[in-house]
Design a protein around this nucleic acid. Structure first.
Lengths: 225, 225
DNA sequence: ATGATACTCGAACGCCTGTTCTGTGTCAAG
DNA sequence: CTTGACACAGAACAGGCGTTCGAGTATCAT
């Protein structure tokens, strides 16, 4: 039978290259070139680095984009572009208007922001205009949203049936989160919890849709009331 | 030819370039080259692309690594290290036991996983032993958790008062999410919704704590029932 | 008008980079 | 010993790429 040499599994040099790519990427925000790998791993020839890179690719440790400069990435690492920074514009709270963004609000003016993995987002909502709000008070509880939650919204002025929207009810003088349904006589705002009754809004009443909820995040690092 | 002048803020072309970089990166896992940007944004000269890239960098929308191929990245994209990959071990559902991890479960054996920005996590919970579960059915609704939600858990066997835990109730033969309180006669499992009554568990009954909920994520990209 | 500013183009330069080819030495199997 | 797979070096090639420069055009304030 074939007695393998030091070629079983990944050798020391493979690991060294892997480690270097990881550390280089952390420092430079982009992958190293073949020559840079060679220099820092004591490999004098680019072909040898290429040789090892091919092996690492076959071993599934690495992905390569041939012909492209620094076209390599470690598997298991999500690419940089896959994170969205969503600005937290303020607080949503019954009785208070939502601090809605102007059409060209500056993302940097937001006091705070939350990072969301793009993989969590529906592909359609990956635009840059998303914004987030802190939920204050328990008035949104009928929408399965609790005090302290963070809601991620997409700014819209119209909604389709079944979508959860943030609305400003002029007659009641409050903001709330409800499921939206358009009906003959007007609009029905349906709480998520069936135990609560829907709010009916007639066509002549003003209904101010501020945004459509695309995600709710609850950090449970605090104690319950 | 009409040349639009928009010296204030970002023009249409800036946005187009920004969008292209984002979409290119999503597709190719690495940034585009200057010439690729030019082709897809109808800019015939590389110098013009470079011109816009410089402006975007000054505007803080972009970072560039000069002299390096495809050395650009959108700001707001956090580096790899700041993301936690949490394995989704399975489904939590009333009447079914929780697929709890063995002490040394393999993260790669998980069918699925979710990426969570480390910045969203309480610092204490940033260990690697977190796991996630899909919530199925509406039996957890009394804990403000709905069908389709994703709960992130930290494996614990004991809980402190006020923490939300996933427990297996042997007598009732179901799993549920409740706030945990230790009392004189036993344990009180308090639903989040005050409208529901707590479950009392006597000391002699078996109470199997599976994990402590540290986060709840709800994607609202689907229609309500 | 006139200059300043903003924007666009095309071409050339030169480095950077992945690829490929040839060659050398080692080591185990036949 | 011969063979062949394996590990490595060095050099050269060709194309990719960012950069720079010169020149031209449109818009606006003076």
């Amino acid at each position: 039978m074939m007695m393998v040499r030091k070629s079983k599994g990944l050798g020391e040099r493979h690991q060294k290259i892997l480690d270097f790519i990881a550390s280089y990427q952390r420092e430079h925000k982009h992958p190293p070139s073949i020559r840079e790998i060679g220099e820092h791993c004591n490999i004098s020839s680019t072909s040898v680095v290429n040789y090892y890179l091919d092996q690492l690719e076959k071993a599934g440790q690495l992905e390569r984009d041939r012909k492209i400069s620094r076209g390599m990435r470690l598997v298991g690492n999500t690419p940089l572009g896959d994170m969205l920074r969503v600005p937290v514009l303020g607080v949503i709270q019954a009785g208070e208007p939502i601090p809605i963004p102007t059409s060209d609000f500056n993302p940097f003016s937001a006091e705070d922001s939350v990072d969301i993995a793009a993989s969590l987002m529906p592909s359609r909502e990956k635009g840059k205009d998303l914004f987030a709000l802190h939920v204050q008070g328990d008035s949104m509880i009928d929408a399965m949203v609790n005090d302290g939650d963070i809601v991620i919204l997409k700014p819209v002025v119209e909604a389709r049936n079944g979508e959860m929207v943030a609305v400003w009810l002029n007659e009641r003088n409050e903001t709330t989160l409800k499921y939206f349904y358009k009906e003959k006589e007007g609009y029905r705002l349906q709480p998520a919890n069936p135990a609560y009754k829907p709010i009916m809004v007639k066509k002549n009443e003003s209904l101010d849709i501020k945004g459509k909820v695309v995600m709710v995040i609850r950090k449970v690092d605090r104690l319950a009331a």
